[in-house]
């Protein structure tokens, strides 16, 4: 009745082709079909941000995009971060600043933070908090995360560290 749909897309630069059930969302596709388990699933209704990935260069909620909607698109996940210097800088800063404890939110947090940094400049701490408002972290209380994002922004802009 539901009928599998053939899709072809690139994931972290690699061409992928699969037949998927229409109800399969993008993060379940990444995790169960491709074994890319770095993208996490929290609330599954768009609130927590753990599933944030990049679709055609923009962050999206992986639980609020169907795999069939990603047909023809380019998807980037935490597993592809080594290809992107911004993500790598963020990863190093998250380690240096202790900006994670359990790490469940971190892949989505990095995707959102990278999108903010791509806009350039040094965002205010309020602007960083606003931008990350849709990514929940239950461990850190956010201060260390804001510190990490701010330190990368400052380093990239050649500004003194806070």
């Amino acid at each position: 009745m539901s009928g599998a749909v053939e899709i072809a897309l690139t994931v972290n630069g690699e061409a992928v082709r699969r037949a998927v059930d229409p109800r399969l969302h993008l993060v379940d596709f990444l995790r169960s079909e491709l074994g890319l388990t770095g993208s996490h699933l929290g609330c599954e209704h768009g609130v927590c941000g753990a599933c944030t990935v990049r679709l055609d260069g923009e962050t999206v909620r992986g639980c609020l995009v169907l795999a069939v909607q990603a047909d023809g698109a380019a998807v980037e996940t935490i597993e592809g971060l080594a290809a992107d210097p911004a993500w790598d800088d963020l990863r190093a800063a998250f380690v240096a600043r202790n900006a994670l404890q359990c790490g469940y939110c971190t892949p989505g947090m990095l995707a959102s933070a990278a999108e903010l940094l791509a806009a350039g400049g040094v965002p205010t701490r309020d602007a960083i908090r606003d931008h990350l408002s849709g990514n929940y972290c239950r461990c850190t209380g956010y201060h260390a995360i804001v510190d990490a994002v701010e330190s990368v922004a400052r380093a990239r802009a050649g500004a003194p560290a806070a």
Binding site: G49, T59, V60, R61, A111, S112, D130, H131, S133, G134
Partner: peptide
């Protein structure tokens, strides 16, 4: 626009 949900949701 800034009041509408979060950036990743505003993208879609």
């Amino acid at each position: 626009v800034p009041h509408i949900a979060h950036p990743a949701i505003r993208n879609r």
